[in-house]
Each structure stands twice: as C-alpha cells, then as structure tokens.
C-alpha cells in the first residue's frame, strides 16, 4: 500500500506537484495521465525517493521511504534510461540485478522463460551492449529488469512509448497477467489513453501538479478522458 500525505514539490516558488492525500492499496493498477509538465514523472520520482519532497511524505506499507533502503526490496521501477547500466550486455545487467535481489541462476533462467514472448528473441543471446540497442529494446530491458526481484509494487513511466505495436500488445497482456496472478500494485503513466485504460483499474488525471480527476475505469472512461483532453 502506498500512502501519500500532504505531498508537495516546489521549484522556485511554484508547486509543480501538490497531492494533499492519496492511498493506493495493494493490488491496484493505478494509471497516471496528464499533459507534459503535469507532474507525472515528479510524482514517480518522489515515490522512488529520487527527489526530496518540499512538504509531506510518502509511505509504503506504513513505513516512510525518504532516505531509507527497506522499500527497495519490493519495489521495481523503470522511468528512463538512467535506470539502465548501459555499458553491460542485457544478460550481464539481468544477472547483476538478479544477484542484487538475491536470486539464483535457476531463478534467472525461469525468469527468462516468462519473458520469452516479450523479448521476442531480440534481447538475449547477442553480445551487444545495452547502449547500442534501439530505444524500444532498451525499454524492454528496463521493464524486464524492474520485474526480476518479484516486486509487490511496479512503477513504470511511459512504458508503451517507443515499443512497436506487437510489443505494446504483449506488454499489456503481461501486465494484466501479473496483476491477476501476483496481485501486484502497478503505477503506470502514459500519454496513450486507450492503453492506460486497458491496463489500469483506476485513473488519475494530473494537471499542473494537481489531481483533477480520480476515477475507476468502466466502459465510459476512455470517452470521458478523451473529452477532458480534447481541445
């Protein structure tokens, strides 16, 4: 469970994020939408303790996360390329991550098996370094690495952009399966309204750092969102 209490991030006197209170229970798939500069990435970075909150705090399972290490054991995340160690091959990166989470070689082999469809034979087996991969394949590596430690909470920023259409469909399927089988909490931001409504049961719309909509998805949600963003 993620609790957000009076969270504010202020840059140069302007509040770029202001969330008085929000609770994301375990197992919820939480979609974050909003135009550029709405504060989506800032919110995720605050949850991952990569920036300091100006006011308020984030708690995971009742524990504060700021400047702590414990939460890292069960949170998997991929926001951008700085979450990749790009001078490694994908295998080296996965094996590093697996060891960091205390997983064995056997666990890793089983993990590769679950990722086979998503990787589509484009990731493993080569000797190419991650920095030489295309953006889309880098994204696959990053998302997979976020899943190695069997996280209870998964945070993904724009996971669908740069992926090819088939991979987008595979990712959606994989996320839905993970949610159903492991009761994983998912925080996903996206500009693609139809993708995010297909994966997430709850959608929050951010505008200039404020949550202007907080709705549970049903068959009308996509239409409602499209109307909201129409200009």
């Amino acid at each position: 469970m993620i609790e957000v209490i009076g969270l504010q991030k202020i840059y140069n006197g302007v509040a770029v994020l202001n969330i008085p209170s929000m609770v994301i229970p375990q197992g919820e798939s939480f979609g974050l939408v909003g135009n550029n500069g709405a504060g989506k990435t800032t919110f995720f970075r605050l949850i991952l303790d990569l920036i300091e909150a100006s006011l308020g705090e984030v708690k995971i399972n009742g524990e504060k996360i700021a400047r702590r290490d414990d939460w890292k054991a069960f949170v998997g995340s991929f926001l951008d390329e700085s979450f990749l160690i790009d001078f490694l091959t994908p295998e080296e990166f996965f094996s590093f991550t697996a060891k960091v989470y205390g997983r064995s070689e056997g666990d890793l082999a089983a993990f590769y098996e679950t990722m086979r469809e998503f990787f589509n034979d484009e990731i493993l087996g080569g000797k190419k370094l991650i920095r030489d991969f295309s953006k889309g394949n880098q994204k696959k590596v990053g998302i997979a690495a976020a899943l190695i430690g069997d996280p209870h909470i998964l945070v993904l920023d724009e996971p669908f952009t740069a992926l090819d259409p088939s991979s987008q469909i595979r990712l959606k399927r994989m996320l839905n399966e993970l949610q159903a089988s492991k009761n994983m909490t998912m925080l996903i931001s996206s500009h693609d309204l139809s993708h995010v409504t297909e994966v997430c049961k709850r959608i929050v719309v951010l505008n200039k750092g404020v949550a202007v909509k907080d709705i549970f998805t049903d068959q009308d949600t996509l239409k409602e969102l499209e109307e909201y963003f129409a200009v």
């Binding site: 890292k72 951008d80 700085s82 160690i85 960091v100």
Partner: peptide, 15 residues
C-alpha cells in the same frame, strides 16, 4: 552518474 537512478532504486543498501 549515467546509471545513478538504477543504483538508487534497486535493492542496494546505501551502506
């Protein structure tokens, strides 16, 4: 620096 976010979010204790 280029992969600092990775090291800070994976299960690696600061210590």
């Amino acid at each position: 620096g280029c992969h600092f976010d990775c090291l800070m979010t994976k299960k690696i204790d600061t210590r």
